[in-house]
Design a protein around this nucleic acid. Sequence first.
RNA 1: GGCGCGUUCGUCUAGUGGCCUAGGACACCGCUCUCUCAAGGCGGAGAUCACGGGUUCGAAUCCCGUACGCGCUACCA
Length: 487
Amino acid sequence: MSNIRVRYPPSPTGEPHLGNIRTALFNWLFARNNKGKFILRVEDTDRNRLVQGAMESQLEALKWLGIEWDEGPDIGGMYNPYTQSERLGIYKEISDTLIKEGYAYKCYCSQERLSEMRKEYSKTQSVVGYDRKCRDIDLSKLNKADENSLHVVRFKTPLEGKIIFDDLIRGEVTFENILLDDFVILKSDGFPTYHLANVVDDYYMKITHVMRAEEWLSSTPKHIHIYNSLNWKMPKFAHLPIILAPDKSKLSKRHGATSILEYRKLGYLPEAMVNFLAKLGWSLDAQTEKIDISKLINSFSLKKVSKSGAIFNIDKLNWLNGVYIRELSTDQLAYRLLAYWKLFPPFQLPLNIDSELLKRIVPLISSRIKTLNDAAPLISYFFTNKVKYEKEQILQKGLTFYDVRDILEKLYSKIISIDNFKSDIIETDLRNYVAESNYKTGQVLGILRVIFTGLDVAPPLFESMEILGKNHCVSVISSTISDLKAN
RNA sequence: GGCGCGUUCGUCUAGUGGCCUAGGACACCGCUCUCUCAAGGCGGAGAUCACGGGUUCGAAUCCCGUACGCGCUACCA
């Protein structure tokens, strides 16, 4: 057991975004690879954006993927509590210390003044930060009431010098202090901002590596200033590349599904999802595409994380998911489908599917589906007595309705005489018929495909017939003949 | 606008000075298999390594500049 400790701090402000979950995955893989700890922390300091049930979704997403945490809000740990809104006292205390030591100050400027100031600045200046009006207020000249009137606490950023730090992925990064704002660390409602809270918690929770999305790179010097002013040892930083939409902008709702839970609903396998996400911004070597979780854990390394953003390629996900589906055994796939349908019942199928019947069907579709969601429309014909299709669908190329009737009538007696209704026997008999007739294989089998399945593109015919059973096949043929006669 | 980060086939990537006339995968195209569709097998097309300068006997790989993209610039995270 090493003392490496990393964390994933979701905000309960919405659905678990693909990018965030990828960050969680990398942290988790890093922890497991190093025999360290993976900590879950709730960053609920923005009271305006809280969403009911959001945290449950976040936890569910991690559980679905098999990313389990060692310490967290629900299971506790050595550094309780793991929810920031329950740690307000700690932030207040640190904030007070910072003020007392001269590293921070109370700011009484109104929101209105701030936005007015920004508007003016943006016209004339390149730096659009706070103008530091309250930075040098002499608190001893204020009476107690005035001192405690509505205010925020701002960090007193040094006016000169620079911050240089070593990012584990990007190398040395430099920021000039003068370009940094006197940022807010404690809001007027008493809640900390991310900048304060994440530093304080990471310190107290003994986090050794902060791995987060690239968008945090620019605020890292702020965090470093807080560490320095408190004389705290800093964690190491690693800023991960961002997941992009096909148009290279940040992946958002208008590009389709962004919540990982939507992908569960779309029928993706968790292990395929993990594999895919891991390969988005990280690679093992020149040729490995499919990597299972244990291999992922054993081989994960920050050195192999790429620097540039990666576009989310749904085609590749579909392919990978297909690979994982094909590698499942019949029993496993049947079980997965049943579990999936229980969660998201498909309209094409009855509520209670017989698992033994399903196990006979699964081999016919496993190589034909990319997602679990693809299965239902492909096999609904096994669960209905009368299949629906357009009359023209049975008209195979080069045939008239008269031909179709002729074929079906001959097939009727052929099929009714098959005693052992097994696919290979059915196949032999039907092929014999085709060979004796003037029709083509595709024409004859095409007709049967449509009347049995209602589909132009369907699972294999002979195997389907065997499962449907002789009685069913015979009755469908005879009723089709009647229909043809009636018209 | 300022600051920061990035830039290898359409996409994900391999690549850390000579093995690169740049490898793999998805997607695409062709052939094969074949009862449809997949899956599988075989093959193809596709990147002058963003651009321009250096350094070097030699650069996708090192340095500088430019362009473009993205991020940050909130009492959001």
